[in-house]
Design a protein around this nucleic acid. Structure first.
Lengths: 211, 211
DNA sequence: CAAGGAAGTAACTAGTTAGTGCGTTAGTCT
DNA sequence: AGACTAACGCACTAACTAGTTACTTCCTTG
């Protein structure tokens, strides 16, 4: 069922445009991004962008949606409910940190979207669906841990989710100003290891009955 | 209809430009901000902006510097070393949260600066000085708490500072996408109270020997 | 195989935007 | 008073940028 290699390939062109757009939007934000740059980097013509995606903002919206779907999909693959609660929690903290570290565009795109008061995400129905599944996963983990007596009762899964994200996200999104303010290279390999360790400790102390 | 004699006041004009610029840069980022809008809102002429501040980027840099100096100054006024360690720590968490909440431009300006890899902050000497004083303050607090047996030993003041900032900053900067992802109005009054409570608990559990 | 549609391109337009040239007005100093 | 300096303002430009027009090239299918 393989399609023969075409000289013309709409899907491939769309994919190249999306990849280039992700990079450009992440680097310069929505206002700072240049459509011409996206076209060039995608080895496509600017006209193709407007043909496939409508306009700059619509393109941004699709890039953003894909970024959210990507992280939520990766999270589901963790299958946290097949391992002991405490290990699962640590695994989630570790995953979140590593995902942000390896996908720095995600952070920048989310920042951009918040600068625009999430007006693009608001239009997306898909996001609500995948987000609910994500919150449910952590809620179930908390229930399981509480039932086993490992986790403190009464922890709000949303607050926990936000906190797990926060301690990784903030460190990485503010790595440039942070390296100046704290006069330390926050992106040095040992600094990154140390931060992950600290984050795991923060969350375990918050959630677990005893260490 | 006589025009009232127009008072000339360079300092007042500069101040109006800075205030307008802060608002515009915070709202739209460096690339999205419009110099004409700043001039209009400052009830000044665009020519004055270039006369006093050189260019758009230099203006951004000064706005950013002032924002940093403002928060660092407010932090120093806390005088954390005159109250018991545990209370001082809680006070710092509470202050950080409240400052971000009441000064949303600070967060957005810092985000913008990080999008630009902190290239403006790098040029500023003042920042390093006020930042060091800030880290020292928290370091002394940690030492004091550890000496009294209230705090766990070996906590890195930089990691703690980052974490205290993170749990407030992330919640607020991502309040728009967060309200969609978590399907909850993160800015409702009770949600804000609840978050502050949760943040205090997070930090106390991280730092204190026992609650 | 011809025909129609889809993929792809170059050159253009209309509007925007940072930055300026140059002139005017108000306050100050001698 | 007159001269000098600094505050202020208008109107312009050169460069840029999102989006479009009008066209060519290639592929599929009836």
């Amino acid at each position: 069922m393989d399609k023969p290699a075409k000289q013309r390939d709409a899907e491939a062109t769309k994919a190249r445009i999306l990849a280039a757009a992700k990079k450009e939007f992440a680097k310069n934000g929505l206002a700072g991004a240049r459509v011409d740059v996206i076209a060039d980097r995608a080895k496509a013509n600017k006209r193709m962008i407007y043909h496939y995606f409508g306009n700059k903002e619509d393109l941004f919206q699709i890039v953003l949606e894909e970024a959210y779907i990507d992280i939520r999909t990766a999270e589901q693959k963790l299958e946290l409910n097949n391992i002991p609660p405490r290990e699962a929690l640590e695994k989630l903290v570790r995953f979140t940190w590593t995902y942000y570290l390896k996908n720095p565009e995600f952070i920048t795109l989310v920042n951009s979207e918040n600068l625009h008061k999430a007006r693009h995400l608001k239009k997306s129905q898909m996001i609500e669906k995948v987000s609910r599944r994500f919150v449910d996963m952590v809620a179930r983990l908390l229930e399981r841990g509480t039932a086993e007596g490992a986790f403190r009762p009464g922890i709000d899964p949303v607050q926990l989710n936000i906190t797990i994200a926060a301690i990784g996200y903030y460190y990485l999104t503010n790595r440039f100003t942070g390296s100046i303010v704290f006069q330390r290279d926050l992106m040095a390999a040992d600094a990154l290891d140390e931060r992950l360790r600290f984050n795991i400790e923060t969350i375990l102390r918050l959630v677990c009955v005893e260490l």
